[in-house]
Design a protein around this nucleic acid. Sequence first.
DNA 1: ATAGTTTGTTTATACTCCGAACAAACAAAC
DNA 2: GTTTGTTTGTTCGGAGTATAAACAAACTAT
Lengths: 372, 372
Amino acid sequence: MKKGNLDLIKKMNRTLVLETIRRDQPISRASISKKLGLSRSTVTLVVNELLEKKFVFELGLGDSTVGGGRKGMKLGFNPKSGYGVGVDIGRSNIIIIITDMDSDIVFKEIYPSTNNVETIANYISTSMSKSGVDTKRIFGIGIGVPGLVNTRSGEIIELSALGWKNFNLLEQIQPYFKYPIFVNNDVNCAALGERWVDKTDNMIFIAIGSGIGSAIIANGDLVEGHHFSAGEINLFIDREDIKHGKENNSESIGVFEQQVSGLAFEKLGYSAEFVLSNYKKGQKEIDQIIDQFVNYLSITLANMTSFLNPEKIVIGGGVSKSLNVVIEDIKQKVASFTNIPVEIELACLGSDAGALGAIAYAFDKIQNEDFM
Amino acid sequence: MKKGNLDLIKKMNRTLVLETIRRDQPISRASISKKLGLSRSTVTLVVNELLEKKFVFELGLGDSTVGGGRKGMKLGFNPKSGYGVGVDIGRSNIIIIITDMDSDIVFKEIYPSTNNVETIANYISTSMSKSGVDTKRIFGIGIGVPGLVNTRSGEIIELSALGWKNFNLLEQIQPYFKYPIFVNNDVNCAALGERWVDKTDNMIFIAIGSGIGSAIIANGDLVEGHHFSAGEINLFIDREDIKHGKENNSESIGVFEQQVSGLAFEKLGYSAEFVLSNYKKGQKEIDQIIDQFVNYLSITLANMTSFLNPEKIVIGGGVSKSLNVVIEDIKQKVASFTNIPVEIELACLGSDAGALGAIAYAFDKIQNEDFM
DNA sequence: ATAGTTTGTTTATACTCCGAACAAACAAAC
DNA sequence: GTTTGTTTGTTCGGAGTATAAACAAACTAT
């Protein structure tokens, strides 16, 4: 918990009023007062401050209530009052996206990947200049990376593709910028990105690409685990795997991943796109491969549902865009394996998910850090 | 979020100082000030108030620092400043426990179970009188029940053993008491109970009795799921189950539970105690039963570990007290199935876990509710 | 027109923490 | 024994917060 002082209650109420206007716009000062339990005088003061800083606008008079009374001045949120920068550092590309507060993309650029911090910082600076966004309006930078991250310290614990091991990216890159910077795992970011457009407090995000990973949001917060390793579903294993001598050992890791991910198809000489687009077109071998994939995936999703009772499971990652042909099948199977209901859907953000989610993460952090 | 006002910051700082004294006692006013960033004058005011209300005591002068200076007056927490009442409504018994703030049991009584609210309220009132505890010092009542609970409304969604379905226990029993009352699932309570004595922010609690259930604590909070159904691991299922035609359907529910719980042994005509105490004593059939049990349990614990990266998994419930003979085996197996490290231990609270945990739950709620 | 209602602003007040000043208590050096 | 420097805890005025009450303005219904 944080200590309480006058500054804190000021910030709290500013944020509270701003969030209320954002969610319930158009709304008058009097309505805000009733809704939040703050006095009308306080709301007036707060709103005047928000108006001055251009966080909100006056939209015009509203309607009178039945029985008369002065019309209230409707207030609206200004999405251009703040911008976030999202950086998705991938194995081959670095995607930089700048959005406003409504998650509308105002700028996007893709650079070749690198592990040189100065180069990355230059990419970010360049994008910020090119975007033409008022730098004073930028609230922070979020960075997503495909590896294990200590989100407290900003240290990349392991990211072999870029040669980072126990490398404190945050400390290295912070000196280049005066904005707060937040680093997290790319799958966690993608999950937050999906959550940004599709509010929910309890969801599981599955990323199926060449490998498989997951992110968990419970009680509205990311579950990162004791050592930031939560979501490593690539390691899942079952009795049949063990019966066949499969194990997660140093030679071969990812028992589940080798059967449910792009890797599973590649091992057989196929691409995920190819097999999925040829499903149920008369080739027995392909049908069998997919059926196994769907079966094991559905069982796993069902068990996750029984375990965490999420509102929804979102499937993303490179392979997900080919999964339309089997998504109904998956839903049906999951419903037959567990009697806890769950929504299952494919991700909607595509390759932007990581960068957008990084912004969502930065935004979440800034909002929460101040009041906890 | 809650609105901010002067009352809030006062409460926050009172709680903050009290918690600091509790954790770091003996500690002086000056040290508290440094630790929390509050001014010495504020700490003085707060401590005086806490002294007046007998939440803390002055213990005597401490040591001077090197180089001289006035000795600080050491402050200590008074565990007898507050008492909690825990009620574990079981299928056959109702256990009522009263503890002080250090979770020391000052009173315990066991009554026969009933679904009559007035009778339960009488049990609680009787126990409170008998205990001799100053009623002004009681901060709240926690109630644990073996069923699905909407912890927000206090409604018991389903508890067939006592004939409760969509029954709002909180609304029914609150009129009998002026203390805040909190209701939760018994396994969730037991998990909080274990966590009370063994602080951790990320743990999974498994209750193995005649059935099997679990509770999850992530980021320091209970994970209850979208509809309070999280932890239903009795429904787990794997490819081998499906191959053998097992399913979680209306006729037979709990595919995993039927193989890993007391039920699994009873189905074969044995008690859990009997088979476990006769493990590796020359009876092949028993050894095989246990091996299967341990294998499937270990696989499941490993997958939970890969998924949530908990600091520890605690195994409780009626069967757990017979599990000593296989706990080492389980630890070894889990470590071979996942390379995410996790501590595995047997629960230490026994049959008191539910009632104690209910107190821990009430305590958590009261501390958090005021500042969120 | 008039009365009743609602909105938004102004003003005085109550309450919070805080910083500076202060007295008291102590160790170390002389 | 005295002095010096340090630390602790208290006191008091000050800055800043929300709030209630009073007020002005805007509107409907009769």
